[in-house]
Design a binder for these strands. Structure first.
Lengths: 199, 199
DNA sequence: AGAAAAAATCGACTGCGGTCGCCTTTTTTA
DNA sequence: TAAAAAAGGCGACCGCAGTCGATTTTTTCT
């Protein structure tokens, strides 16, 4: 439809996000001011707020976009017939590497998504559901192959795996585990989760 | 030693924390300004910053104090000879109830502790270690009773349980699980973690 | 006790996130 | 194509977190 206007808006939005990636990565999220970001993007300060409601929303928008993209890529990378643990490692290490590559973005995003001020919006839940929808077939297939109990709900299985993922994230952010050790740690914990803690 | 001065400082600190609990609980953390807090506490704005480095540190100090207290209480409540799952429920539901009672404090605290901007300080690690020290005997005793595998490191066992605790917290903050359902959900997930996901 | 030193209190000030109303650009209407 | 309407861009302005140096209170020294 409206060509000039729409195209320009898309370009400006991209430009803000690109500038944000550049500055937040270099100087940190809190250390970068909106005015600075506006200058880098070559626009006025107020304009940024007609694209994003808050400074954090810039991070949220960027991460949502990236995750969308990353997950669409993943469908190609995982083979549903390989052992469950291998598939899980591919999926969750991809997410994890994204975080290690964008520490500041990941931190702000996780604050909002994991311990939000208000319960998640309908839209945010949708993002989460899309995520589960991607994983459910994998778990179901693993159940069929006898790798997972069939008396457990898929939601619970997803929860256990997600819990380990969260644990790895916090271990990394707190400095308890070094970046290069995360892969091993995650594999160990996921295997233990599958096998159980009791003798 | 110095009586008047020290006593007065302790009283002022307490007063700031009390005012913070009152205002943050009533109006929310972000919605309460430092000036307002200073007024409530009957002191100047600048004074608050000679007791706490940042607004968030007020929350951190309060929560650290409370957790210290809560954990010392717990030693009395738990009987190391009862089944592991019962002990875990007592400990983690106590922590959890504290969070539900102080949602705003918990949220800010969790942001700082779970996904911190900088790796945790030596002091913060100590708090975490104290926590583990409290739990290790429980896990070790459960291993001796044959409730837990003995080939797993206690650190890993602690990790699995903590992961479930984090999961419950995020489910609550995101609105995915209602307050009254948390107990059941946590018990279910912990039992599954102990039993394992594979057939 | 009185002077000097040390510690604590304070609020004006700075910088930043976010708002708002005015101005410019684009689109629609006739 | 010209005028009206709509949308977008903008930066001065507001409120608040956090700073700093001047002032008051307490402690120490002689």
């Amino acid at each position: 439809m409206s060509s000039i206007r729409e195209q320009h808006k898309i370009r400006t939005r991209r430009c803000i996000l690109d500038s944000a990636v550049k500055l937040f990565s270099r100087k940190g999220f809190e250390q970068t001011s909106i005015e600075e970001l506006a200058r880098e993007a070559g626009i006025g300060k107020g304009t940024i707020y007609s694209y994003f409601e808050t400074k954090r929303d810039i991070v949220k928008a960027f991460c949502d976009d990236q995750l969308d993209y990353a997950r669409s890529e993943l469908a190609a990378k995982t083979n549903p017939e390989t052992p469950l643990i291998d598939q899980l490692m591919i999926i969750f290490m991809a997410d994890f590497n994204y975080v290690t590559d964008h520490k500041e973005f990941g931190r702000v995003y996780l604050h909002e998504k994991v311990f939000p001020k208000e319960p998640l919006s309908e839209e945010d839940f949708q993002v989460q559901n899309d995520y589960f929808d991607m994983l459910y077939p994998i778990y179901r297939r693993a159940q069929e192959r006898g790798e997972l109990r069939t008396d457990l709900e898929l939601l619970h299985i997803s929860g256990h795996i997600y819990a380990i993922y969260l644990l790895m994230l916090t271990c990394w952010y707190t400095g308890m585990i070094a970046t290069e050790d995360i892969g091993d740690a995650m594999r160990t914990m996921m295997i233990q989760t599958i096998e159980g803690l009791k003798p």
